[in-house]
Amino acid sequence: MNAVNQSKPVVVGAEASVPIKTVSIDKKALSGYLLATPPLLFLIIFFLVPSILLFVASFWTSKTFTMIPAATIANYARTLSASGFYDSLWISMQNGFWTATLSTVISAPVAYYIVYKTRSNAVLYLALVSWFSSYLVRVYAWRTILGTTGVINSTLQQFGIIDQPLEWLVFSKFSVIITLVHIMLPFTLLLLVSGLRDIKKDYLEASADLGGGGFTTLWKVIIPMAHKSIVSSFMFTFVLAASDYITPQLLGGRDAMTTGLLIANQFRSVGNWPLGAAMAYLLLAVFMLVYATLLGVLRAANLAPGKRYHD
């Protein structure tokens, strides 16, 4: 409508609206659709269609690397009745929760500094530099740092602070989470920086002007306004860390069997694709539950926008 009206400024009034409606397509909307088409097609072909196929396959049965079409919920039932699934889920959820919480909490003051305290992007670039090394290199680097003969243990031993190397440093939950946090930190930092950039300094000054100290401004203005980027930063890293199975395998010790690994095994070694698909969809359901819980918690704590505080 807009484009048409602009091209025919002479036409005025109700009677003119009849020919306008018959005039062809809105150019603005058309160019929008054209721009959105390539990524949309990509998503449909490589994400939506395989996801639907996988969902359908989760109701099939399997016999040594062959899938047999069926309509059974046996795969779901089997997963939900196996204690191994819950054990793996517990490990995954811990990895996800601690990684997402620590990454978001550590990134927040850095993002605040980058957006409000300095005009240079040096700190941001510095944080992004770690992306120039590969995932595996970073995992092995942590193994070297945290190992029984690693930098930390040998230093502590040399200064006589400990006699025996600290075994829990490596091949433990601790080493998995510290590595995942290191890997995820740039993501959360970028998301929080872009979220805070939308909150102009005016809002912080307005809060101070009305009597809000630093802490009040944080809780009553910054967090509610940055709510979306905080949630996305948390969920993004939660999903990535909870479904990760490389780092837990290399650094997790007894805690290596995450749900991600369980699912991967169904596809790679066991060859039961329908069972793997069912597990993947159960994990997806758990993620959605976590998302809903997070939103609920933020809302209950008055940290989400859209609430009225008066009657």
Partner: peptide, 23 residues
């Protein structure tokens, strides 16, 4: 600023978008 008995009307208003007019 929060300790001074002055209040400011900002050029771009800086009204909090997550609160309604009353709040």
């Amino acid at each position: 600023p929060e300790q001074r008995p002055v209040n400011m009307v900002f050029q771009k208003y800086a009204l909090f978008p997550h609160l309604d007019v009353f709040d």
